[in-house]
Amino acid sequence: MASPEKNKKILLDMVKQPSNDYCADCGAPEPDWASYKLGVFVCVNCSGTHRDLPAISRIKSIRLDFWDDSLVEFMKTRGNAAANAFYEKCVPPFYYRPQEKDCVVLKDQWIRAKYERREFTGENNSLPYSSGLYEGILWKKGKDNKQFLKRRFLLSETDFTLRYFTKEDSKKPKAVISMKDLNAVFQPEKIGHAHGLQISYLEEERTRNLFVYHDNSQEIVSCFNAIRATRFAYLKKVDPNLVPLITRSSIKEGYMEKTGPTQWEPFKKRWFILNLTDRKLSYFKTSLDALELGAVFIGTEGHGYSVREGQPKGSRSGRWRFAVTLETPDRQFVFLCDQEQDQREWIEAFKLVISQPMLPQHYNRKENTIYRKKWQCVGLAACFREPNSGRVEASHNR
């Protein structure tokens, strides 16, 4: 007869062993669920997808459920390391392996690809994201409105481009996007769709965003990995050292208010994105803006960059609430946060970027960052028309 307490202790001892002490699928620490058909330990979040695959995987809690002796013996013969050696044997180097904090669609499709479709065991050599050519229909948000419209996308490894067309049978693309600076990242909450994908690239040295989704989760993840595959091939050709930069995620996003260089200009609410890989702080009018208003390069402390909380020296008391002051060699930036927690998170994010050493490619990016000295006027001598607004503003107060 099975001893529940004895079997529970065996499982709890097993889950403390190296490789079993993190989720087999997303790497979350201290998993407390297990698949007794696959012999892997997984976290509560990944267990949900396993539960949706009853023909492939069967899930039990290692703490709360009853475990028969035969199931425990089976788990003792498997474990995460042995299972992943088989199910992840041939994962392409460009394929994105989701982590604990990644969105549901990435983790769900990773689990299905591993166990249900067996894409990485070496049995399947015909994968849509690794053919060097991807074509599909995605819903794309209009540049100047909130409406999503169907657009045809064509990704080619031959010339390292992503094209999209306004009509399915169009011969002439609306845009031809180079792989040189293209980036793709899932942003379901921002876009308002569980499969929302943000594609960014440089257009005349300004970041432009495309917000897209597909109703089919496998299709959108295949599109994402096809982009990574093409970018991987491009980076291998131009500079193999840049391969780790296939796609980049921001370390902090959110609204803050900013003012101009004299710090007497009105504060304006902007959506900010801080990227560690590019050492770049970009800002937009809203979270779903297609075109970047401006950007600031973030160097190291040794290059004259620093960040602190609170108002600048010599300013009037009480004018800045939850302020973040960013010092650069050219000027001082002051941002306002709505909450003290936001202030702390932004300061920690800036400190993380500043603490990282600059790489050779960062020096080129610094010169090409949109925020240039010609925008750093103190008076009102230089003016420009803010994109799509019809208003004229001082250039330093975008």
Rank of each mutant, 00 (worst) to 15 (best):
E292G: 11
W375E: 00
V353T: 00
R372G: 05
K366A: 09
Q339T: 09
Y201I: 08
F120K: 08
G39Q: 07
G122D: 10
C46R: 09
G390S: 02
R152H: 08
L53I: 00
S131V: 04
T262D: 11
Y129P: 01
V324G: 01
V44P: 06
R206P: 07
R208A: 14
N20V: 03
L245M: 13
E292A: 04
K190S: 02
L235C: 10
N275E: 14
Q356Y: 00
F86D: 02
W110A: 12
T286E: 08
L149Q: 13
W264P: 00
D108M: 05
P29M: 06
W271S: 03
K146D: 07
G192E: 03
R372N: 07
R112L: 13
L242G: 14
D21M: 04
H193L: 09
D21F: 01
K268L: 08
S200D: 15
R112E: 12
K171S: 15
V392R: 03
L326A: 06
P173K: 03
A233E: 14
A2T: 04
F153Y: 01
Q187D: 07
K180T: 14
L274R: 03
V392Y: 03
P240H: 10
G196Q: 12
P188A: 12
P261M: 10
E189D: 14
V392I: 08
K60W: 12
K351I: 08
S156E: 06
K237N: 15
W271G: 00
F335E: 01
L71E: 12
R308P: 07
F41C: 02
V238I: 14
K89G: 05
L202V: 11
K146A: 14
V212T: 12
F232C: 02
S47Q: 09
D330S: 06
M179R: 11
L197P: 05
S57E: 12
V42G: 09
N209T: 01
G192T: 01
L210Y: 14
R321S: 11
L106R: 09
H50N: 07
V392Q: 09
L336F: 07
F86L: 02
S315W: 11
S200I: 15
A175W: 03
E345S: 14
